[in-house]
Structure formats: C-alpha cells, structure tokens
Amino acid sequence: MDGGIAVLGQVAFWGLYSGCIYILLATGLNLIFGVMKVVNFAHGEFLMLGTYITFFFFVLSGFNPYLLLFLSIPILIGAGIIVERLCFRPILGTGKLNEIFISLGLIYIFQNGVAMVFTDEWRSMKSPFADLTIAVGPIQLPLDYIIIVAVTAIILVCLSVFLNRTTTGKAIRASSQNRKGAMLMGINVERMDMLTFGIGAGLAGAAGTLWAVSGQVFNPYMGSVPAIKGFAIIILGGLGSIPGAIIGGLAIGMVENFTAFFLGGSWKDAISFILLIVVLLVKPTGLFGEEGE
C-alpha cells in the first residue's frame, strides 16, 4: 500500500464520518429499546424523512442546511410520537415478531408516501461549505465532515445532559431501568414511551440532515439498510446501553470502510452481518448485552 499511514488515516476518517450516522441511529434505537423494549425496523424511514425534510426546506428557503437541524429534529420528534401512539402502543407486549411485522407495514407506507410526493429519483443537495477543505497533516479534510463530527458530538452531549440533569430525562432513565418501579413512583410511563420514541426518531432525523449535507445522494428507499445495521450495532454494543451504541456505531463505521478498502466495496453491507453472526455465535446475548427481553 503506497502512502501507508496517510492512506489508512484517511480511510479511518471516512469510517469516523459514516460512524457518526450509525451512532445517531443506534443511540435512538437503544433509547427506545431501553424504555419500551420495542424493535422498530422502520427506524431507517425516519432517517430518510430527515434527508427529505432537509432537502425540501433547503430548496425552499436556501438557509444554511445545518440550521435545518432545528427543523428536521422537531418534525421527526412529532412524527415519532404519532407513530408510537398509533402503531406501537396498541401492540405493546404482544411479542417482538409483531413489532417487526408492523414496522414492515410502516416501511411500505413511508417509502412510497415519500415516493408519491418527491418521486423515487435520487436526490442530492450541496452544502455551502462544499468547496472548503482543511489540511490536517498529510490528509485533506473537507470542512463539512469536520462540522458533521462536531455536530454529532454536540447532539450526544446535549442528550446526555438531558438524560442526566433534567427531571424528564431522569424519568426516562428510571422507566428504562425498571418500568414497574417507575410506574409505582408516579412516572407516567406511557408518556415516557411517546417521548423516547420521539427523541429516537429525532436523532434519526438529525442523521438524515447530516447525510444530505455531506453531499450523499438519497431516495425514498435509502433508509432500510442503515436501520438494520443500526440493529446489528445495538446487539453488538449491548441492548439499552448508550455508550455501547456509540462504540458499536464507530466500530461498524470503521470495519465497513476498512473492509471496502481491503476486500472491495461489494462486501460493505455483508461485513456488518458477518460480524453480527460471529459475535452471536460466541455470545448469544451480544457483546455487552445482559438484560432486556
């Protein structure tokens, strides 16, 4: 390999960038799983909605797309709350398979609903910073990716402050640790369900905005594969554990990019599942998984 370290460093940075998207997805999934023990395979559709909301308002308003985070996150929180109330609440506790099947229906509804409005052509948009790069040692880094990594970090810090310092955040954590106990302490668990689901969807929406800003293309069907990888990540990183989701997301981002580098791009999707199956063979509960259903 010519260039050695510099090339590997560059690949690692691409891994870090794609890891950011996975981290946001997996954190949301784990938050939801922690509180509700629900498996929503349609989570990737929130990511997709995030990209389209960003795209639509960017074309409409011409605002700096990073500002649109303040639009995509609240809209997706709303969407998440509605989906939870209408679809997941009625089947809560009827089994994991039912949850998976209902998400299948949701996938069809969201994907084709968006396709009806925006057609299923591939879209992309251009960030105002698209042409700026910063040299870090021998590697050229586009400014956008540095912002994306920073934004992800800020979102995670905000989330952690919310969960640890605010009353509502503490209530969410309490419901996650012990649902019945939380109920006995007078916490409205169902409201926490709705809120958590909303926050999870909001994180996916943020990931969608970052996806679009980075110049990657998207269409209505782009969400399913990242979401399923998100599940692989939370199984690997431990169900309900947010640090696990962050480490797992980063790991999958890196592994994928190094696999593409060494084995070729066609193995990029398959590798996460191979990793998942290998880990489950060794430890059927996942790497750090203990509790959960």
């Binding site: 679809c87 949701l106 996938i107 084709n112």
Partner: peptide, 17 residues
C-alpha cells in the same frame, strides 16, 4: 403505482392491530 404499496402497508398495520 406507489399507492398500492401504501395500501398494502396500511392493510398490514391494520390487520396486526
């Protein structure tokens, strides 16, 4: 065209619930 996927999706959700 897209509508039938949506109809199938809604049908699925309704039947499960």
């Amino acid at each position: 065209t897209y509508g039938r996927f949506i109809i199938i999706g809604i049908l699925l959700v309704l039947i499960i619930i």
